[in-house]
Amino acid sequence: MTNNGSNETPLPNDASGKDSTGETATWRVKTGLAQMLKGGVIMDVTTAAEAEIAEEAGAVAVMALERVPADIRKEGGVARMSAVEKIEEIQKAVTIPVMAKARIGHFVEAQILDALGIDYIDESEVLTPADDRNHIDKTVFRAPFVCGCRNLGEALRRISEGAAMIRTKGEAGTGDIVEAVRHMRQLWDGIRSLQNMATDELPTAAKELQAPLELLREVKELGRLPVVNFSAGGVATPADAALMMQLGADGVFVGSGIFKSDRPSAVAEAIVKAVTHYQDPIVLAEVSRGLGAAMRGEAVASIPVEEQLAGRGN
């Protein structure tokens, strides 16, 4: 360190200025954090030790979970918000943002996560839904929300409820990328269709998509969602991650793919590099070396539709 202490100008800088003048929990601040996560990898972790491995590998955030989706799928039972101690232990272990999941419609789990100062709440189909009709009103929370979608209509319904970030659902815990690809393609197909529509066709499209007309107008003008969109549910290799980026994801969630592989830190680091250099096959080949066996996984085609998680939520 080359700083010469004697030359420094000390400042009466106690950060107290921000409380009197700043506005917190605004839409721009909520969507803004997601913008800072772009081009990054968000990793599922179940312990402080895993969180440290994820941070060291270059994760932009971690998702604090009781069990990774592959275990939820295998063990069954009701999947709920993580234990508070677990979340706090992970918050203490890392400086990157910590996210955690609440059950669909379980606004009290969300209130608890908000009280813990969680950086992002995932209202997630991976947990057992608490409400089979309604999602959480996400506008009333300080913490921003990310929600899953399979297509444009679902994405816009979640945004209209206050989601500041979207992820395509895929099929969590399978290590099979097919649903992630399907949902990402469906989403972009929806966006491209809107762009081709005449203005007077939008009201009918809004009815069909069951989404607010105002958001349809915005998507048509922007040519993308008005919030950041990551890919989730099935990413197991650097190639999977780069595939989702090339299909138009802003970043990638990796769940079971890291800690269910032979060499978690090597796989985690390789996926991080693959997301930055997703358009460079030479780098992708290089980072794909020496990773050992990827998670074994389970083909989505072999899972009965009623056991698939992506159908949860509306």
């Binding site: 950060a15 700043g22 917190t24």
Partner: peptide, 20 residues
Amino acid sequence: MDIKVQRNAYGRQIDSFETA
């Protein structure tokens, strides 16, 4: 740059803010 910086000094995401 000859500056001393403290990371995440304003707190967690819920303390993020906008202002003039």
